[in-house]
Simulated scan of single mutants.
Amino acid sequence: MPLQHSPPPPAQKEQTPKTPLFDAPQPGGLHTSLSSSEPSLNQNIDSLTNNASPVITFRNVKRKRLEEDEENRLSTFMSDLKELFREFKQQQEERCAKLCSTVDQIRDTVDLMADKFNDLTARVEVLETERKEILSYTHKLEEKLEHFEQNSRSTCIEIRNVPVAKSETKTSLMKTVIDTGNLINTQIQSHEIKDIFRIQTKDPAKKTIIVDFTTVLRKEDFLEKFRKHNRDRFKLTTEHLKFSGPAKPIFVSENLIARKKRLYFLARDAALSNNYKSCWIKNGKIFMREKEGFKHFEIKSEADLSVITKSA
């Protein structure tokens, strides 16, 4: 019986032993192993140093080039920045110059306008002074005109609330005045009446009668007797003068100009509101008295009435 034998193991390739970088320590021989490894270590370091030196040189060159490029770019940037600043400064100087020129023009214009304003102010002051003088002069002229007009009525009286009769004439009006004089105890002669007529009023049926006496004394006597009669006896009415219809009071007063009539109306209202004793008219002038025994004073304008109202 044949015997089977296992095939022989393949032949092992001879391997070149690798020299270790460091020798393995041998038991009991530590110092021997370290001393034997030093030549290898130094040799390897020198080998690494010699092999790396070209790489280090290449990097230094590249870094220098990069640094030079950075310096060039920085220099270019700084140059551009300086140029921008120079242009900006030039633009600002030009703008500043224009602005200064404009300001100078405005200043000149303002100075011119100020001079014109001062001239206008001086002219306005002169005109205002002239206006006040003109107003003062006009006021004096108005006062003189009113004085002359009032003097032209110094002999005239008004009789109000007398009904208008049919086919009325100056003769019938004169008879009414003479009858009124008889009632108040003063005898009126026809030759003492220079003129008599009616004037237009709000009520056409009761137009005011204007009686123009020949003298101021006769006018004053008629007014005084009428006031005394109304105060001491009884108030005169249309019934006493034989007029038909309901009895209505008759009013007699001086014939005043329009401004004096308004002032007299306001004066009576102010006297009533401020508890003044009396307010009356004499010779075209308006007088007021606060209480009996007090001195009377004249009302010349509405300003006098405002003083009375404030002091009350």
Rank of each mutant, 00 (worst) to 15 (best):
F222Q: 03
I196P: 03
L241D: 01
L241Y: 02
R198Y: 02
E239Q: 05
A205T: 15
I199F: 05
E128G: 08
N161G: 12
R218G: 00
E224F: 11
V216N: 14
E125N: 04
R160P: 04
F222S: 00
I193K: 01
E149Q: 10
I157W: 10
K225P: 07
S190G: 07
T171P: 00
G181Q: 01
H240Y: 00
N230L: 06
T176F: 01
I193M: 12
L183R: 05
E158C: 06
R233Q: 14
T208P: 03
C156L: 05
A165K: 14
R231S: 12
P204M: 11
E224H: 09
H191Q: 14
D195F: 06
Q187A: 08
R123S: 14
F234M: 07
A205M: 12
T155W: 02
L145N: 08
K116P: 07
T129Y: 13
T169H: 09
V162A: 12
S190T: 05
E220A: 06
D212E: 13
F117W: 15
E146S: 13
D212G: 02
R233H: 15
T121G: 11
K116H: 08
K219L: 13
K132D: 09
L120K: 15
N230V: 04
L223E: 07
H229N: 07
A122H: 09
Q187K: 04
H240N: 05
L135W: 02
K140S: 09
K116W: 08
V126I: 13
H191R: 14
T201V: 08
E133V: 09
L127M: 12
D212M: 09
A205I: 10
T180H: 02
L135G: 03
V126R: 14
L145Q: 06
I210C: 02
I184V: 15
K225Q: 10
E142A: 06
E168T: 05
F213M: 05
C156W: 01
A122W: 07
E146Q: 13
K132S: 06
V164T: 15
E146D: 13
R231Q: 14
N151L: 11
T121R: 11
K206E: 04
K228D: 08
E133D: 15
F148Q: 14
T155G: 04
N182Y: 01
V164L: 13
N185I: 04
K140I: 03
T121D: 14
F117C: 15
V126A: 15
T129Q: 13
E142H: 10
K144M: 10
E239I: 02
T214C: 09
F226D: 00
V177C: 00
E142S: 07
T201I: 00
V126Y: 09
K140D: 10
H139D: 11
H240E: 00
L135Y: 08
F222R: 01
D119M: 11
L145G: 05
V126P: 03
F226P: 04
R198L: 04
Q150W: 11
V162Y: 08
L145A: 05
T215E: 08
L120M: 15
R153A: 01
K116Q: 11
S152P: 00
E125H: 06
K206Q: 00
G181N: 05
E125W: 00
F197R: 13
E168Y: 02
M174F: 02
D119Y: 09
E133F: 09
N185R: 08
L183V: 11
H147I: 00
E192W: 00
T138W: 12
H147N: 02
Q189R: 10
E142Q: 11
T208I: 14
K235Y: 09
S172R: 12
